[in-house]
Amino acid sequence: MTANVFLIQILNGLVYGGLLFIVSVGLVLIFGLRRVVNFAHGSLFMIGAYVGFSISLVAGFWVGIVGAAVALAIAGALLDVSVFRPLRGQDPIATVLVTFGLLLILEDLANTVWGKETHSLPLPEMLSGSVEILGQPFPTYRLLVIAVAAAVGIALALWLRFSRIGLFVRASSVDPVTTAVQGVNTDRVSAVVVAIGTGLAGLSGTIAAPLLALSPSMGGSILIESFIVVVVGGLGSFSGALIAALAIGQIHNLGIIYVPWAATMVPFLLMVAVLVWRPTGFAGSHV
């Protein structure tokens, strides 16, 4: 394999890592604040893809992306108010089971509304071409995926670091009781964070839609890899999720090339190794 082809593979790993980051950072935000392991996250990704697909057919691709993110964010706020908040005092397993139930309901919903047949979202003309990188044509759209992931990462980092509500989020994730005592409305903070988390699931679904076939079970494998990212990065850690997603993106791609017989196993081996050597993940549990 020539150096150029190898570098293109690194770029491909960056695309997949970027996509994984957008999916898993939503999981991380929700866990960081609500301490909820959201099994329905993959289904929200899938619903986001379908909503984006439907809106795109009527109003175009860009409206589809924004529309799916907004629709899923609204659904997230409702989810927080109607499910996560009432279950706050319960055993965590109750919330896990409820999110698992939600996963099943959302898959059935997609089956009923969009059918079992696979769909695919065509790209707008300006994104369907390719650009020359290192003498190799590379799809323009894949570069957009990297750009969106970078934008999401930067925006979230700035928001968490410099905004007032970002400060509340960081405080609530460390100690929600003390934060509430200081006069912060933690319920409102939670609703905002869950809405952003699910909105990101919707966004990643639509971003992935032109790459993947749309089907009600499309969220399954990405959810598993996102959980690996979250565990490896550190439950609830924003920066940990970024590093882990980028690492798993590369491992995923390079594994296929160099150890194809073990490619599907490699991310799991990394997770096991991290759990053994550093059970809190790369970055511990702080947002």
């Binding site: 082809v5 593979q9 695309v15 997949y16 993947l212 890899e225 995923h252 390079l254 090339i257």
Partner: peptide, 11 residues
């Protein structure tokens, strides 16, 4: 059920 085929396509 693979999601990303880029590495295969490049090969």
């Amino acid at each position: 059920g693979a999601t990303d085929y880029a590495a295969y396509i490049q090969q």
